[in-house]
């Protein structure tokens, strides 16, 4: 078993919230005083990359790949995510439109793995 799993239990020092709070700073008191918002209760790209490493070490290559794609999407806003998802559904988007979305993800969010997934969907 990787020594760092579960991270929240074994290595809380490794994770911090998107706004830079440390794991142990997220307390009920902090929530009540307004120092913690919903955005703070999100996974970070760093944590997802660490989880991808754990999955890979367990031999779960596809899960690791998914978690790395997820790490890329952390900074992508929800409306863009839903736009890409909808474009990938059957008959929604032309090949060109999909390729443009792939370029957008790659250039604006450095989401190369997601871009590759979209390009793969656009083949043929």
């Amino acid at each position: 078993m990787p020594v760092d799993y579960p991270i929240a239990e074994k290595r809380p020092d490794l994770v911090e919230t998107p706004s830079g709070l440390r794991f142990e700073e997220i307390t009920l008191e902090a929530v009540l005083e307004g120092r913690v918002a919903m955005q703070d209760l999100r996974v970070t790209a760093a944590a997802l990359c660490a989880q991808a490493g754990i999955a890979e070490a367990a031999g779960r290559l596809q899960l690791a790949e998914n978690l790395l794609r997820a790490a890329e999407l952390v900074s992508v806003p929800e409306d863009r995510i839903l736009a890409v998802y909808n474009a990938l559904r059957p008959g929604r988007a032309t090949r060109e439109h999909l390729l443009a979305l792939a370029d957008e993800l790659e250039s604006r969010y450095a989401a190369g793995r997601c871009a590759q997934l979209i390009r793969e969907a656009a083949e043929r």
């Binding site: 579960p6 929240a8 999955a55 997820a70």
Partner: peptide, 28 residues
Amino acid sequence: KLRISGDFLQTSAVVLPGPRVLSAVNDP
């Protein structure tokens, strides 16, 4: 809070009282 660490994204994860994450990684 467990979302922040992503621990329950691993295969077969459940959250037990504690809360404690149990998955195919630490309970294979």
